[in-house]
Amino acid sequence: MKLNLKVWRQKNGQAKGGFETHQVVADEHMSFLEMLDVLNQDLIIGGKEPLAFEHDCREGICGACSMVINGRPHGPNKGTTACQLHMRSFKDGDTIHIEPFRAASFPVIRDLVVDRSAFDRIIESGGYVSVNTGQAQDANAIPVEKNQAGESFDAATCIGCGACVAACPNASAMLFVSAKVSHLALLPQGQVEHENRVQSMVTQMDKEGFGACSNTYACEAECPKEISIENIARLNRSYLGASLSSK
């Protein structure tokens, strides 16, 4: 299949970027990133700079890949990261637009690569249980109700990709933050620090310049791990509770 690519090129954070057009011949069994590999091989042989994009596991779990494909973070398929998207989702002759995740808190590094270190700093502010190695009791000492553990797991499957931010008109990071808050809040081990955690993570999120949540649900629709918007509601309830009870 022959494809027309309109890809975003930007030398660095300061430079002004723009779209560049390229033709690529692809195979329907290729993954989307393998199609970009083909483009890059052509560019290098042709003496040009390859397109920079982030990727690693190529199976939807590391959260590295991050691009907006035809206006949608991670492309057209529901619950699918860009690296899991295959070319059979496109047709011969299609024009495909490829851009970086866009958000003030995710500055562009090069082409499609953006800086998502703000997410690390949010976790650093409180997204953990304070337990040192060796302090733990026997793992079966505290039973956790099966469905509750399952719900916690569902929230914990967030891969930290940032598509929720890219999808949100306000570039809010609420889905990401609430997923971590829920993961820990739903387990007894995480409850002790729950209120403080909510306060500090939300404060850090604001400090990083992410926008406010106005319930557009765009994040949930684009999240490749289908993290539920329920988590945001849960966070809001805790945040309110935590604010009221804070001294």
Binding site: V131, A136, P143
Partner: peptide
């Protein structure tokens, strides 16, 4: 054995049985 204890304490959501045990 200590690894499992440590990970559970950190909040690793391992699969559980109906009785709430691992």
């Amino acid at each position: 054995r200590e690894i499992i204890d440590q990970c559970v304490a950190q909040g690793v959501p391992f699969a559980r049985e109906y009785g709430g045990l691992l």
